[in-house]
Amino acid sequence: MLDKSMFKSPNLRLEHGLADGAGLPLVCPGCRREVSQEVFEQEFCQCARCGYTHKMSARQRIAMILDEGSFLELDAGLQSSDPLGFPSYREKLNQARTSSGEKEAVITGLGSIEGRRCAFFASEPGFMMGSMGAAVGEKLSRLFDRAAADRLSVVGFTISGGARVQEGIISLMQMAKVSGAVRRHSDAGLLYIAVLCDATTGGVAASFAMQADIILAEPGALIGFAGPRVIEQTTRQKLPEGFQRAEFQLEKGFVGKLCRRPEQKALLASLLAMHEVEPA
């Protein structure tokens, strides 16, 4: 179980600055520096003074990584129903839709990175902690299938609390389903790069986040199967400093490279260039 605050910006305006309070300066929770929304986004939502890494929405990721105007969203209208009739889930979905401005916890589509075409996905942390239910599983499966058909690499940014409990077993099945789509894409000889962001855990860490050909991570990101609080409660052990952070995963051998936001686009473009395939 993860702390919900991990998936929310301390200052709502930092995530949804354009929706309200546009023009007002934002305040960095790390150092109280005041910065305009425009400068803030130019600085990759990372404080230039204290280095505080702010949560980024899926749309901000798209703007940061993909070439301007290149993104074509797929399955934009796809959304979860309530397969179990889980108490108060429909209200939760409505709240998430309102607060995030998105229909589901992942955005998928096609785009280009420094001119190189790819399939792209980004988790939306503001939508029920980026959790995976039927809609997330279906959108990702369709994306990998589409990428396989079009012979495109897949680049994805993961942030997730894991499988969405409110969709019960249907959520668990999405782990298998997306794994199948990743496998088919892989068997077609195509590249998949995952960038693990804060936090990537549970059923997402135990499926598509860890199935990429190349696994990158943002410095400081929490990456693990069980959440730290659950481990502490279960084992009654104090967790060591830096446990499950990206640097820890690098040391243990599960992450290929750490990459800060300002360098991500260029790194992804280089990796895509090294895996160029003939178009279908």
Binding site: T201, M210, I223, F225, A226, I231, T234, F243, Q244, F254
Partner: peptide, 12 residues
């Protein structure tokens, strides 16, 4: 669920 399981990549 535990420190060792995470160190050795339970998710992976």
């Amino acid at each position: 669920c535990g420190i060792g399981a995470e160190e050795r990549g339970q998710g992976q």
